[in-house]
Design a protein around this nucleic acid. Structure first.
Lengths: 356, 356
DNA sequence: CTATATAATGAAAGCTATTCCATGCAGCTT
DNA sequence: AAGCTGCATGGAATAGCTTTCATTATATAG
């Protein structure tokens, strides 16, 4: 681990120019005579010199780095979003650095601060505290303090904080899913998994209720389960549904692909089939939806557009451009094999109002 | 975006001490009288002062950041490894920053350099060029240059480069998988997916052949397919197997969980069942292996140990400790439902040497 | 009570860039 | 020929911290 001893002064001396000139060659910020540029570039190549990003950032107060903070890497929802966002950030000439808070609020706050300390040019927040229904005022304060010197973009709305939001149109997603189920004859639709204190989940539930009302269908509390976002959450939710209903609903919306997998597992264990005995729609349309059999009909957010919009927003804010404070990402429904028309006998059951 | 104007001098002045003293309070590098410390801490809190990491890193030539570069975020193999590694890095008092090269060698090189420019305290490489069978000499050179001033740890061996390796014991994994299949009566075992120019795949294939030889079983070229690491790779591989063999092998090892899913899909489409008609073992044991039905019997690397070892290695190198250049992570086999005893009729077929 | 070791503190240099400002010089204009 | 313009360049200040060294204050020993 030798000392590098290699800096802009070394290069300048070796090339017979001033550090300023070397800097100009490096940053291409001003014109340098052809001869000197060539000479400097030669020396740089000869020594494999690489400018120190810390010094550069300190001196210029721009780092060309955009910091991403996601609450999880294992959930493909974040992986895919991160990947697309990262791709665009790169295309726009910035470096994307990723932190994962591993679902810990404590880490999230710490890393958020570190991102600030590192003087990244913009901060992008995905999930976690920024997706809570009730915003922790301290968290909003923190974001506000950062927002004074660095643009902050989130995928959830942080109440009372001056930051930009690129959000999914949750309501539209629920519309699509439910319309699809209705069109297949389903009237008894459960909503499995997720926690009500998470904004995106809360919004889905609100829409779910309101659609039922519009269609004149009774809202049943026991059709909505509260559980985590993993497979076990879906499994538990389905079990709960099974335990609290004499007759099962004919269809289920799972809060994400993981929980849908949990639902599938439970259903399979009880000897029922998907989609024949139960239609299943999930949200997120991650790679998981393609991986299982039957493949999942899923609400899709178009990660490419989503990630791109987030990245573009960040960069435009860096450039001081005007950007709408809220942008919505449209949802689509990807039809696969986990949904089917309700069976006649189930339909009959329904007509007799045999559902408990 | 107001100017912060907030630096160590501001704090020093406000607290009536010198910047050196503030620095001492900040870094806890030397003793400061109780009274002054309290005073300084108070002022820091009052202004919400946060030291600039760039300046700190520049001045101290230590950043307390460890850079991770993975070739992919979507593959849960990397997500899980990254997560565990990250967890340990955090526990050891460092900040983990993640770059993803999105399977692009060009990006990998660029980000690797950026990591160096950012003066991270250590660099961890996962996959990509560092897992190629034949090391690109320019790449090795690059790593060697970095390695002069920063420890580099990889999950694959980079030929001719002075870096540390924490690798999976691929051979052992293959042993476990094949012994398991043998014990179920299988003699015709295919190996699906992956590319021979990827070291980890190459090593698996080499072991595969040598085990067959040890058991006196003919090695058949057409039982090994060359394809990518996605679901389509597994699907295509299985199709190829189907097309080039009059009688299918009774079992398959898939290069990873994704390709196993592809295999399952193809098999399903042809109306065959897993595990009854075909036993399937995969490598990596990612969350995907738990998600599909039947759940996959899979070779597991214990991501927690793996990630921890990688992180520990990096930190020990930072501290100038001696660390073995190569460390192996043991494999286990996780038994699930994708493998079963060979069917009697298939067995009979085998005895008649009816296999083509 | 002096001598000496030790703890606390400040001053100043250093880390490695960028950037503003001043200067020199060539080429034009009049 | 004098004056002006504009480009190329170097010098010096600056960004915000750490760290070494020197100094002062305090405590302990003799």
């Amino acid at each position: 681990m030798a000392k590098s001893e290699l800096n802009i002064y070394t290069i300048a001396k070796e090339a017979g120019v001033s550090p300023s000139t070397v800097s100009r060659v490096l940053t291409q910020s001003a014109r340098v005579s052809e001869a000197k540029r060539r000479r400097v570039e030669e020396v740089i190549r000869k020594y494999d010199y690489r400018p120190n990003s810390l010094a550069k950032g300190l001196a210029s107060s721009r780092t060309k780095v955009i910091g991403l903070l996601a609450s999880d890497l294992i959930n493909p929802y974040y992986s895919q979003l991160l990947t697309e966002c990262t791709r665009e950030i790169d295309a726009l000439g910035y470096y994307p650095v990723v932190f994962s808070s591993m679902n810990s609020y404590e880490l999230e706050v710490r890393y958020l601060q570190k991102l600030f300390d590192l003087r990244v040019d913009a901060i992008i927040l995905m999930g976690g505290k920024s997706d809570q229904l009730v915003t922790d005022p301290e968290y909003a304060d923190l974001i506000n303090r950062m927002a004074e010197s660095v643009p902050v973009v989130t995928t959830g709305k942080v109440e009372g904080a001056r930051c930009w939001q690129v959000a999914i149109d949750e309501a539209r997603g629920v519309d699509l899913a439910m319309e699809h189920l209705f069109s297949l004859g389903h009237r008894h639709i459960a909503m499995i998994g997720g926690r009500g204190d998470v904004k995106s989940t809360y919004e889905k539930r609100v829409r779910y209720k309101s659609i039922l009302r519009n269609y004149g269908i009774t809202y049943r509390e026991r059709y909505v389960t509260e559980s985590n976002y993993g497979m076990d959450g879906g499994y538990e939710g389905m079990k709960q549904l099974f335990d609290t209903n004499r007759t099962l609903p004919t269809s289920v919306m799972a809060i994400n692909d993981f929980s849908a997998v949990g639902v599938m597992r439970f259903v399979k264990e009880r000897g029922m089939r998907i989609p024949e005995d139960l239609s299943l729609v999930s949200f997120d349309n991650t790679i998981l939806a393609e991986a299982v059999l039957p493949r999942l009909t899923s609400v899709c957010y178009d990660y490419a557009t989503f990630g791109k919009t987030v990245a573009d927003t960040a960069v435009r804010l860096i450039n001081g451009e005007d950007v709408p404070v809220v942008q919505q990402i449209p949802s689509r429904l990807i039809l696969r094999n986990s949904t089917a028309e309700i069976l006649p006998e189930r339909k009959a059951q329904e007509d007799e109002d045999n559902f408990y």
